[in-house]
């Protein structure tokens, strides 16, 4: 659906977008750097090659989910089903690859088609059946969770007969450990960056991206100017489903299994990453770079607090405080 990327009239929305982006980039990135400095000063074990590798890969699943959810949030919608749809895609991959013995690429394809289908149902319910996005995707959260359990027969499905499957996320294409001991870039991280670049291009260079912003800032105006609002909205939810499937591939490959009872709660971390990165829940504003930085903030914070041995109960409290702080700073920035 996204292929008919018209080259025309890219200038007007892009310039204003860039300007708000630049400020946000600086703000969130500054916070990330600050966090790195603080943790590095407090513990000698934080700023090491292997720990940086750990933070990078810990960001992969949440980062990709957050990229997907950024699109729907920009349309002033929401997708609560990204976590359990991700799980459903992993179960479909397990079913196809392990239980039916088909080649890995077909399994990955089945996962992606599942993600797109779930996104389509979300979009269809929101546009045609007029369900509020919150309700439509809340329903999908449960449907996907239930189907994962049914299809897997409430059992994890393992990929250990296919050693190549684990390499999708854990393989090392870029090994920097010669320069900095322990620093390796796992494929999962490359997939995250690839997803981020793809999403940025879609958001800034394609019709789909332009309409994503248009739907969020003024849906009625978009409709009156002849945009097929329903069609594009469905496309946006399918895109989110696609990124859930991509996160599913990384997840399944990393833990070398499809765990059917996982996934609930992941949507909140993804939404938090998007919001910390400056995506506005009232729609019309947001950037992929901001979201990725938001995801890095969350995983860096979680990693650092554990390295400092902060009691686990307090780690949860601190994470909540940081979400408040990030969004409050964003509001102050906007007021200026």
């Amino acid at each position: 659906m996204t292929t008919n990327a018209a080259p025309a009239q890219t200038s007007a929305p892009r310039t204003s977008l860039l300007r708000s982006d630049a400020a946000q980039r600086f703000m969130a990135f500054g916070a990330l750097i600050l966090m790195f400095i603080i943790f590095s000063l407090l513990s000698p074990y934080f700023l090491t090659g292997s720990n940086i590798s750990g933070i990078l890969i810990a960001t992969a699943v949440n980062g990709i989910l957050a990229i997907g959810v950024t699109f729907v949030i920009i349309t002033s919608g929401i997708d609560l089903s990204v976590g359990t749809v991700m799980t459903l895609t992993t179960v479909m991959m397990g079913k196809v690859v392990t239980d039916w013995g088909m080649p890995i690429p077909i399994g990955l394809l089945a996962g992606i088609v599942t993600g797109l289908a779930a996104g389509f149902v979300n979009g269809f319910l929101i546009t045609k059946a007029k369900l509020p996005p919150f309700i439509a995707t809340l329903g999908m959260l449960n449907v996907a969770r239930g189907l994962s359990l049914v299809i897997s027969n409430v059992k994890p499905i393992y990929f250990d007969e296919n050693p190549a499957f684990n390499q999708i996320a854990m393989g090392v294409f870029i090994d920097l450990s010669r320069f900095i001991p322990g620093l390796v870039i796992n494929n999962a991280v490359l997939i995250l960056f690839g997803a981020a670049i793809l999403a940025s291009l879609i958001l800034s260079k394609t019709v789909l991206g332009r309409y994503t912003f248009a739907l969020g800032s003024n849906e009625e105006a978009a409709r009156l100017s002849g945009v097929n609002v329903h069609r594009w909205k469905i496309a946006v939810y399918m895109l989110t489903g696609f990124f859930s499937a991509l996160a599913g591939i990384v997840m399944a490959s990393r833990i070398n299994s499809a765990q059917p009872s996982l996934g609930q709660g992941y949507e909140l971390d993804a939404i938090a990453a998007a919001v910390i990165g400056g995506t506005s829940l009232s729609g019309g504003e947001g950037s992929i770079l901001g979201t990725v930085i938001g995801a890095f903030l969350i995983s860096t914070l979680s990693n650092g607090l554990k390295i400092l041995s902060v009691p686990p109960e307090w780690q949860i409290v601190v994470t909540g405080l940081i979400v408040w702080l990030a969004v409050w700073l964003d509001i102050i920035r906007r007021r200026k």
Partner: peptide, 26 residues
């Protein structure tokens, strides 16, 4: 016993926790 952490029985979350603890305690 240098660390007691809780990962909700989630294999992925538990993985990140274990890695951080190992980093902090070589």
């Amino acid at each position: 016993v240098v660390s007691v952490e809780y990962g909700a029985g989630d294999p992925l979350k538990s993985t990140e926790i274990v890695k951080a603890v190992i980093q902090a305690n070589p």
